[in-house]
């Protein structure tokens, strides 16, 4: 097979490019510590979420000094709880599941973006710093009212933050 020298050069360059991309992604995973949503949670029956400890009562819970967990449910066409309130400078882990069809939980203008699939629990941990407000949208079509599905993530100043009593 006779391959022109220039073409060999390009073949080499293309391989370099591919390896560079894979290396960046690997750096993102290991160096920068970006984790992918995975299969670490058990499956769950979407029809009986009401009886579940975490999702029966969607809420924010404090689990450590600056650590919070959010148990959120997406269903046609709302997010619960709404708004989601967390304090500044904290580590927040979201546990999100669906009560009906596939949705997404996507925090506008950020990298927090995950599919919400009935039967599965999506988890993601993020660091929040400054106080502020972020919109939450569902970016997966979920039925005729899909465009009405929105929520709010509010990062509050340390001194104003208070967990709702859920006795």
């Amino acid at each position: 097979m006779n391959v022109h020298t220039y073409e060999k050069v390009w073949l080499g360059a293309a391989m370099v490019l591919i390896v560079f991309f894979i290396a960046s992604v690997t750096y993102g995973a290991i160096g920068a510590g970006v984790a992918m949503v995975d299969d670490s949670e058990e499956t769950i029956d979407p029809d009986t979420l009401g009886e579940d400890d975490r999702f029966g009562d969607p809420r924010v819970e404090q689990v450590g000094d600056d650590e919070y967990e959010v148990y959120a449910v997406a269903r046609t066409f709302v997010f619960q709880p709404d708004p989601i309130e967390v304090p500044e400078d904290s580590t927040v882990t979201f546990y999100i599941t669906s009560g009906d069809v596939i949705h997404s939980f996507s925090v506008v203008g950020t990298n927090a973006n995950v599919m919400v699939i009935p039967g599965e629990v999506a988890t993601m941990t993020v660091e929040v710093d400054e106080p502020g407000e972020y919109g939450i949208v569902c970016n997966e079509y979920c039925g005729p009212g899909h465009h009405d599905m929105e929520g709010l993530l509010v990062v509050q100043p340390e001194d104003e933050f208070e967990l709702e009593d859920d006795e």
Binding site: V108, E133, G135, V137, C138, E140, Y141, H147
Partner: peptide
């Protein structure tokens, strides 16, 4: 977002 009839939101 893609697949959205009204990508205009009330709260933000």
């Amino acid at each position: 977002p893609r697949r959205t009839a009204e990508p205009q939101y009330r709260g933000f």
